[in-house]
Simulated assay, not measured.
Amino acid sequence: MKEIVIHSEYIKLDQFLKLADCVSTGGMAKALLAEGQVLVNGEPEERRGRKLYPGDRINVEDCGEFTVIKQS
């Protein structure tokens, strides 16, 4: 499981996907989510604006498993 560090209270899912190098554009993120290839805490997620907080676990098909951590 890879850790993705954020420096704010939360990160939006589309921004997270870019930070994790799963996609390079917002359009790619939208397509990935529409295809049901992203799970947040074990549940399918389709909302690009979903807020992710430290401790959330994200599984992206063909990209990997990630957890959000906050740097103080």
Rank of each mutant, 00 (worst) to 15 (best):
E46Q: 06
R47L: 08
T25G: 03
N59K: 12
I11E: 12
M1F: 14
V68R: 07
R47P: 07
K30I: 10
G55N: 00
C63V: 05
K2D: 05
N41I: 03
A20F: 06
V60D: 15
P44Q: 11
S8W: 04
G27D: 09
V60C: 09
S24E: 10
A20Y: 01
S8P: 01
A20E: 08
L32A: 08
A31M: 13
Y10M: 04
A20N: 02
I11R: 07
T25Q: 04
E46K: 14
Q15Y: 12
E65T: 08
P54K: 04
E46Y: 04
E61F: 15
T25P: 00
A20S: 02
L33C: 03
M1L: 10
N59D: 05
Q37Y: 15
R57S: 09
N59M: 07
Y53C: 02
K12V: 05
D14M: 08
F16K: 01
N41R: 04
M1D: 13
Y10K: 03
S72E: 12
M28A: 14
F66E: 03
A34Y: 09
G64N: 05
I69H: 01
H7P: 03
Q37E: 15
F16S: 01
P44A: 09
G64S: 13
T67R: 07
D56W: 05
Q15V: 06
V38S: 08
K12G: 02
E65W: 08
Q71Y: 15
Q71V: 09
D56E: 11
M28Q: 15
